[in-house]
Design a protein around this nucleic acid. Structure first.
Length: 311
DNA sequence: AAGGTTGCCAACCGCTTGAAG
DNA sequence: CCTTCAAGCGGTTGGCAACCT
C-alpha cells in the first residue's frame, strides 16, 4: 500500500475564484476514518457536502470514489475468484467495457477493481494465449475462443463444454470451442422442424438448464451440454423466450434452478418446474420454442436481471 | 546489493448525463 | 431553452512492491 500523500501536496483545484484547495493523492487512515464515520452516521448525500461536513480537505468526487472503491462496508476484499473471473469473461463478452454494469453483477466488487483486473490479469492472458475476446459491439458478433490451457489453471476449462448454443444447435456434432454470444439474427436452427433460440446466449447458464430436469432429451438434444459450470448451485437468471404450447409467449427472466425455473419477475415467489414451463418430456423436441430476434436494447434491459452472485 | 522492469491498483481526469433553477 | 452542478462512468496515470538481472 502506498503511503498517504503528505499535506504539502495539497493543491489548488484550479478554481481561482474560490481558491479552494483540495487534497489529492492517497488517503490517510485519518481521512478514511473521518469519511467512514460520517457516512455511517449520516448516510449518503451530496458528496461535496459530505466532504465539507466530514472535515475533509477533499473534493466530493474524491470522497465518493474513496467510499465506493474502498470504504463501503459491503466491499469484498481479496482476489477475484475463478468463478468471478469466468463471470467477468462472460459479462465482458456481452457488455464490453461497461465496467459498472459488470460490477453490478459481482457483489462486493467495484467497477474499478474489475477494470483493473481486466486490464492487467485477463488481457495479459488473452494476449499471451489463445484466449481471445472481441469486445462486444451491438451490431457485430463477438467471438470468444477459449482453450483450457490458456489460463494457467485460473479459468475453468471451457472447451469441454458446448460453449455456443447456437453453433452446437446447428450442428450438434460440432466440437467447436467457439463461443459466439451474438449470432446473426437469422441464425436460427431447426430441430425436427422446430426452432430454438435463447435470446440471451449465455450458454453456461443454459448448460445448467440442460440437465436441470435430468431428462435426457432436454435441451442437450439441441447441442446444449449437461455441464453446470461455475457451481451455480442456486440457479441463475437468464432472459429466455419461450412460446409455449398454448401459444402464449413467455418472455421473461427466469432463474434456472436444478429442478425448477423461477420467474424472477415475480420476486421468486412463483415458481414452476422446467417441464411445466416448456413442456419437457411431452414436448421436448423444441416445439414450444420460438426464434427470438436479437435486440440490443432489450438485451441490456434484460441483462439487468442477471443475478447478483455471491461466491 | 543495486538498479531496472513489471504488475497491481488507488486515484485522478475528462467526458456524459440528468436534474434543478 | 440555457446554464449550472452533481453524479456516474471509462480511460489513464503514477506510486509502490515484487521480481528479475
Amino acid at each position: 500500500m502506498r503511503k498517504p500523500t503528505p499535506d504539502s501536496v495539497i493543491r489548488d483545484k484550479g478554481n481561482h475564484k474560490n481558491k479552494i484547495k483540495f487534497r489529492k493523492g492517497l488517503w490517510s487512515p485519518e481521512e478514511d476514518e473521518k469519511l467512514m464515520n460520517y457516512m455511517l452516521i449520516n448516510g449518503q448525500g451530496c458528496w461535496s457536502d459530505i466532504a465539507r461536513n466530514a472535515g475533509l480537505q477533499r473534493c466530493g468526487k474524491s470522497c465518493r470514489l474513496r467510499w465506493i472503491n474502498y470504504l463501503r462496508p459491503d466491499l469484498k476484499r481479496g482476489a477475484i475468484s475463478p468463478q468471478e473471473e469466468e463471470l467477468i469473461l462472460h459479462l465482458h463478452s456481452v457488455l464490453g467495457n461497461r465496467w459498472s454494469q459488470i460490477a453490478a453483477r459481482l457483489p462486493g466488487r467495484t467497477d474499478n477493481k474489475i477494470k483493473n483486473f481486466w486490464n492487467s490479469s485477463i488481457q495479459k492472458r488473452l494476449k499471451n494465449n489463445n484466449l481471445t475476446s472481441t469486445t462486444f459491439s451491438p451490431n457485430k458478433c463477438s467471438t470468444v475462443s477459449i482453450s483450457d490451457t490458456v489460463t494457467g489453471g485460473m479459468i475453468m476449462p471451457l472447451h469441454d463444454y458446448s460453449y455456443n448454443v447456437v453453433n452446437t444447435c446447428i450442428d450438434s456434432s460440432s466440437s467447436s470451442s467457439h463461443f459466439n454470444p451474438f449470432p446473426p439474427v437469422d441464425n436460427s436452427f431447426d430441430a425436427n422442424g422446430s426452432s430454438v433460440v435463447v435470446s440471451l446466449n449465455l450458454p453456461t447458464y443454459v448448460t445448467h438448464f440442460g440437465t436441470a430436469t435430468g431428462n435426457r432429451g432436454g435441451l442437450e438434444d439441441y447441442g446444449v451440454t449437461e455441464q453446470c459450470l461455475m457451481g451455480f448451485e442456486n440457479g441463475i437468471c437468464v432472459p429466455f423466450e419461450v412460446d409455449d404450447i398454448n401459444n402464449g409467449v413467455m418472455s421473461s427472466n427466469y432463474v434456472f434452478d436444478k429442478k425448477k425455473v423461477i420467474n424472477n419477475n415475480l420476486n421468486n415467489t412463483e415458481s414452476m418446474k422446467l417441464e411445466d414451463m416448456v413442456g419437457f418430456g411431452n414436448h421436448w423436441q423444441g416445439e414450444n420454442f420460438k426464434v427470438g430476434e436479437f435486440d440490443w436494447e432489450g438485451l441490456l434491459a434484460n441483462i439487468k436481471s442477471l443475478p447478483y452472485l455471491d461466491f
